[in-house]
């Protein structure tokens, strides 16, 4: 069992969620409730990682973050290290790759809140911020939780993009999914099996939490 790889995967999932979810809430609300030019194009762009082969996305990210690119050079000048083949590099890749998994459940959750509920909150004197914290967030919470869990679980399982951008550097970019691949290549099936079972367990718990919370959501929306 490669504990270091598991810890790295958990860190990657944690930071991906911490950065992506607040940004995703803003974007999901914007798309759910506002009509603006280019809305459909924006939605298509955000959904692109769903259908793009991970290697394609990984290739573009690698090309964008390389040491000869403006982004790579800027990063190196500021932080003194290379963005590719680093934890920060795979974190950026993970954020981009998880955008649709984070945005879409939250967008659906905000869309399901009737406009009249928000207007009723304003009519009760609640400011936009209080309406968000006291009305919108509790109502959209199951969708937000779904986004968090999907993003986290998907980060743990991500292989192609992380390998392309980060390679396989122990303690830096070797996630548990890469470690499983690594173990199989080395004919170490016993460790590969333990790590696979660990990922399976985490994924099952994650999906179960989503269903339990959706059931809770149903409890104040009446019988189905």
């Amino acid at each position: 069992m490669d504990w270091q790889a598991l810890e790295l995967s958990l860190s990657l999932g944690f930071y991906t969620c911490i950065i992506l979810i607040p940004f995703g809430i803003i974007l999901a609300r914007l798309i759910a409730w506002h009509s603006f030019p280019g809305r459909n194009i924006l939605q298509a762009l955000l959904a692109l990682p769903l259908i793009l082969p991970p290697t394609v996305l990984g290739f573009y990210l690698l090309s964008a973050m390389g040491n000869r690119t403006p982004l790579g050079q800027w990063y190196e000048s500021v932080f003194g290290s290379s963005l590719v083949f680093s934890f920060q590099g795979i974190l950026i890749a993970s954020i981009i790759f998880n955008i649709p998994f984070a945005i879409q459940p939250m967008q659906r959750a905000f869309e399901s809140i009737p406009q009249s509920i928000r207007e009723a909150a304003w009519s009760c004197g609640l400011s936009s911020w209080k309406t968000f914290t006291r009305i919108e967030l509790p109502l959209a919470w199951p969708g937000i939780l779904t986004s968090i869990i999907l993003t986290f679980a998907h980060t743990l399982g991500e292989f192609g993009v992380v390998l392309m951008v980060g390679g396989n550097i122990q303690g830096e970019t070797r996630t548990i999914a890469i470690s499983i691949y690594d173990r199989v290549q080395a004919f170490d099936n016993a460790n590969a099996a333990i790590m696979s079972a660990t990922l399976l367990g985490i994924s099952f718990v994650a999906i179960s939490i989503i269903y339990i919370f959706y059931d809770k959501l149903g409890s104040y929306r009446g019988p189905r």
Partner: peptide, 26 residues
Amino acid sequence: QTRAAGFVFQDYALFPHLSVRENISI
């Protein structure tokens, strides 16, 4: 928010996650 107007919406627009008391307390 500043206009003191009580609005009863056609679909009532009650806050579904809040009890009767909590709805009235908002």
